[in-house]
Write a protein that binds this DNA or RNA. Structure first.
Length: 930
RNA sequence: GCCCUGGUGGUGAAAUUGGUAGACACGCAGGACUUAAAAUCCUGUUCGCAGCAAUGCGAGUGCCGGUUCAAGUCCGGCCCGGGGCACCA
């Protein structure tokens, strides 16, 4: 009987579904294990062969853990809110809810084809009101919270109110916010003052503390998409999606105060198993640096402002303070207008408008040295000397204080600036500084620096900060690059905010009013200036409802919790259930979410933990990043202005245009010319210039994308070879973490392996399984495989795992072994990798309609079958392989020595030279040194 | 520029703590079965040299050097590819 994979796979997939084989309860005596994939955005393009890579890996691991006796939670759902569905709606008039539902059903049928063990009864969609009710609820918790720096926890606003009422805010200053609204006080107030504030002022002050807050801020505005984007959605000054230009704009926005969690987000990284690269990416994004804030008093007496204001700068190198030759302010800095000398007014004004005219992108592309002198001077806090104040675009308003002290001898950019504007440079590094290159190294010894002379960075930094603190001119300061996360989008297809605006005050909806459902609209056009489509709905605006919606990462920041208790209508997740499932033990997904989704969900988890809703503060215990499967594109070359296409090897003889063709029309490199003619009308009358009678295509590895005609649909692979072959082949391609181009060549090898396995059981006469007792050799093959599969699966080395099965089956085929006691454990081990064939054969060997590998256990390893009594050891003389000698495994060092030296082959190589040393590495080799 | 990765046959890749480099598979070459094809099976396949042959000798994991009886693996310096960050003071 041949291996009829289509029938087998169809049968088992239906059986699993009918019997709800993969549904899992929330209670068990077994230890738990939670395996989760980053859930997909259901795009219109459907799945290509790259998507399932991670799902297959996680499915193998989930199935493996079940066999190992764990109670495994392995759910799947859809990240269903997002921009592409809305863009599609604008272009095609299809409501996002409809196109999303359609896409989901395509995804589902594609996923079902591959035989995953997801518990579909737990499916969630972030766009489902029953789901986003709780997204809105969590938002309300964040809105009703503040971050208490003293306790280092998220706390209820009520505790802050009590503090304000009893002691004012002297001990709890307004968190560093870039969004202070001028008409409200950015000051400390007493308890009495608080009592006297009108409600509106109180609310405005509270807003400055809330974890989810609304404020005016510079945001990344994308005109083409008509929305605001988060920092991680902007790449090189253009939008990540679509590549549209992005400009800075001041708008009213919702934010998450993730900056308050920066230290805990860093600390938490030490407690999770993420790759070093991932941890680095997150730490760099958070960008913690420590240094000092130093105040320079303005000394330009003629302007009469010397008494009040000073310029605060942030520096990580306060030790170089004696090398300060000038200060530089960001052009947007608040003090620029007030300190500029009359004679410089015009130049400064011109410079500021020049900077405004430059887009973010231009600024990044061409790093020009530019700037202008303000005419003002500051007083050096230690030397009292006058220091000129400049403005330049290389100083960013958003980082530190928006002002720097420039030390040209210690900083490359400052030196270039000094050279460009011919500002004299003070040398504080003695001979080491030649004037050509700045000395940034921390081991440099300071000179020309008063009390810091002869000191290095380590020694000087404490001395100088202490001195500055004594003088009241500076203090220790930690800075972060991370910004509060923009949390609102001027879009339709997202969660509505459960917020009503009344006289400029944000009032949360009552919990009972949730979910606040997204209204059905006919037009998705933007509202007035910076407002979303919801602003066009009279009933919506009449209630004063917020017209922005939440960003894509809102729903995905907590979905792993909802999977634990997906149908709960009373809570987002029952505490006793989340106490059972705890963290996700294995989280599988791509690296593209390193600084977006992964940071946000970590922050939400910490907030929910602080507020007592869950019992753990890191969502993901271990993260496995699967690589991308890239497309291997194929090109044809059209001779310019003709219908002739020239084969790749001859294209240099013509002037040609390179055109993508569908990879599915190309076998290896050879084009199916008939298929091309049928493909599109413009190719119907194509002519070909061939080499060796074939048309050879050009190739390039690039991203797998419909647009490049290099996508391969898993359905076609499954149709041709079966799901088991597909699963094993994706794993066989290489380590899961690695990116690699898809190449169908080679899938035959895996398919052959499954056919060979099938033949071990089946001959023309039907099933042939023997109850004979296996030989020791057969047991050795089995137990060697058990050991290997267990080790490989545990360390996610699925590619070598697949190889181990091949080696095992080859050995059993050579031994003509069809013994039940060998084959059954083999099938159990194989079932995570190739579940359909394993089930089919297992049931047949058991001769029991109800037998299933799903209720089996991973076979127990019996070490005795791994042990051999003696072994052929390689013997090397001076590191060169000279002989193979059979040595008993329990032989002592002395025995080994006499056996080895007695061997004629070894004697020949020693030729009477004295033995210096004999190294016996057990189980590996023997090395004789002469 | 900074940080993180990786570099091994014609190809995808193995080698878990330093211990016979190239497992496993693709491709290729030859053979068996077959009228033929498909399917299946067997043999060979890092490179060079010698031999009818089994085999022997030499070289070999990006390059140069070091540690070690022994290095793909550890250390130092360089070259190249991939990913991330980028006027972050």
């Amino acid at each position: 009987m041949e291996y009829r994979f289509r029938d087998i796979e169809k049968y088992w997939q239906e059986k699993w579904k009918a019997e709800k084989s993969y549904e899992v309860s929330n209670r068990s005596d077994k230890p738990k294990f939670y395996v989760l994939d980053m859930f997909p955005y259901p795009s219109g393009a459907g799945l290509h062969v790259g998507h399932p890579l991670g799902y297959i890996a996680s499915d193998i691991f989930a199935r493996y853990k079940r066999l190992k006796g764990f109670h495994v939670l392995h759910p799947m759902g859809y990240d269903a809110f997002g921009l592409p569905a809305e863009q599609y709606a604008i272009e095609h008039g299809v409501h996002p809810a409809d196109s999303t539902a359609k896409n989901i059903s395509t995804f589902r049928s594609q996923l079902d084809n591959i035989g995953f063990s997801f518990d579909w009864s737990r499916e969630i969609r972030t766009s489902d009101p029953a789901y986003y009710k709780w997204t809105q609820w969590i938002f309300l918790q964040l809105f009703d919270s503040w971050y208490n720096r003293k306790s280092d926890r998220t706390e209820k606003i009520a505790t802050l109110l009590r503090i304000f009422e009893s002691e004012g805010n002297a001990n709890y200053p307004i968190p560093n916010s870039q969004f202070q609204i001028p008409e409200y006080p950015d000051v400390t107030f007493t308890a009495q003052a608080w009592q006297s504030f009108p409600e509106k002022t109180r609310q405005a002050i509270l807003m400055e503390y809330r974890v989810a807050y609304c404020g005016y801020g510079e945001v990344n505005w994308c005109e083409a998409l008509g929305t605001v984007l988060a920092n991680d959605e902007v790449v090189n000054g253009v939008s990540e999606r679509g590549g549209h230009p992005v400009v800075k704009k001041k708008l009213r926005q919702w934010y998450l105060r993730i900056t308050e969690y920066a230290d805990r987000l860093l600390e938490g990284l030490q407690r999770v198993e993420f790759s070093e690269a991932m941890k680095d990416m997150q730490s760099n994004w958070i960008g913690k640096s420590s240094g000092a804030e130093v105040e320079f008093r303005i000394s330009n007496k003629e302007q009469g402002i010397s008494n009040a204001e000073g310029i605060r700068v942030y520096t990580t190198r306060p030790d170089t303070i004696f090398g300060v030759d000038f200060l530089v302010l960001a052009p947007e800095h608040d003090l620029v207008a007030s300190i500029t000398a009359p004679e410089q007014q015009e130049a400064v004004g011109e410079y500021i408008s020049y900077v405004k005219s430059r887009s973010e992108r231009e600024r990044m592309m061409e790093k020009k040295i530019s700037g202008v002198f303000t005419g003002a001077y500051a007083e050096h806090p230690l030397t009292g000397k006058d220091v000129p104040i400049w403005i330049s675009e290389y100083v960013l308003a958003g980082y530190g204080t928006g002002a720097i002290m420039a030390v040209p001898s210690g900083d490359e950019r400052d030196l270039k600036f000094a050279h460009h504007f011919k500002i004299p440079v003070t040398n504080i590094f003695g001979e080491r500084f030649t004037g050509e290159e700045a000395i940034a190294a921390k081991d440099a010894i300071l000179s020309n620096s008063d009390f810091l002379n002869g000191k290095n960075y380590q020694q000087a930094i404490d001395l100088v900060i202490n001195r500055l603190e004594e003088l009241g001119a500076g203090k220790r300061k930690v800075n972060y690059k991370i910004r509060d996360a923009a949390f609102s989008r001027q879009r339709y297809w997202g969660e509505p905010f459960p917020i009503v605006w009344k006289d400029g005050v944000a009032i949360p909806l009552d919990e009972k009013e949730l979910p606040l459902e997204l209204p059905y609209v006919k037009s998705y056009g933007p509202g007035a200036e910076g407002e979303g489509p919801l602003a066009n709905i009279p009933e919506w605006t009449a209630r004063g409802l917020e017209t922005n919606t939440m960003p894509g990462y809102a729903g995905s920041s907590w979905y792993f919790l909802r999977f634990m208790d997906p149908q709960n209508e009373k809570e987002f997740c029952d505490r006793s259930i989340s106490d059972y499932w705890q963290q996700v033990d294995l989280y599988v997904g791509g690296t593209e979410h390193a600084v977006g989704h992964l940071l946000y969900s970590r922050m939400w988890t910490k907030a929910l933990y602080d507020l007592g809703h869950i019992g753990f503060d890191e969502p993901f215990r271990k993260l496995l990043n699967q690589g991308m499967i890239q497309g291997s594109s194929r090109f044809i070359y059209r001779v310019r202005g003709t219908h002739s296409f020239v084969s790749a090897g001859l294209k240099d003889q013509y002037e040609t245009d390179e055109l993508h063709v569908d990879v599915n029309m190309v076998d290896g490199l050879e084009l199916d010319m008939e298929a091309l003619k049928q493909w599109r009308p413009e190719y119907a009358d194509a002519e070909f210039i061939l080499e060796d009678g074939k048309y050879i295509c050009g190739t390039l590895v690039e991203k797998m994308s419909k647009r490049l005609y290099n996508t391969v649909n898993p359905d076609t692979i499954v149709e041709k070879f079966g799901a088991d072959t597909f699963r094993m082949y994706e794993m066989f391609l290489g380590p899961v973490e690695m990116s690699k181009p898809w190449d169908t060549k080679g899938i035959e090898g895996v398919h052959r392996f499954l056919k060979k396995l099938w033949r071990l059981f089946n001959s023309e006469q039907g099933l042939q399984v023997s109850d004979e007792e296996p030989t020791n050799e057969e047991y050795r093959v089995l137990h060697g495989t058990i050991k290997k599969i267990e080790e490989d699966t545990e360390r996610f080395s699925f590619n070598t795992g697949v190889s181990a099965f091949m080696i095992c089956v080859n050995a059993l085929a050579d031994l003509k072994c069809n013994k039940r006691k060998i084959l059954e454990p083999l099938l159990v081990m194989l079932s995570p990798y190739a579940p359909h064939i394993a089930e089919e054969l297992y049931r047949k060997t058991r001769n029991d309609e109800h037998a299933s590998v799903l209720t089996a256990s991973f076979p127990q390893l019996e070490e005795k079958y791994l042990v051999e009594t003696s072994k052929e050891y390689p013997v090397s003389v001076n590191g060169k392989l000279r002989a193979q000698i059979n040595i008993a495994l329990d032989a002592s060092q002395e025995d080994v020595q006499s056996i080895v030296l007695a061997d004629p082959a070894v004697q020949k190589w020693m030729e009477g030279k004295p033995l210096k040393k004999l190294i016996y590495v057990k189980g590996k080799m023997v090395n004789v040194v002469v």
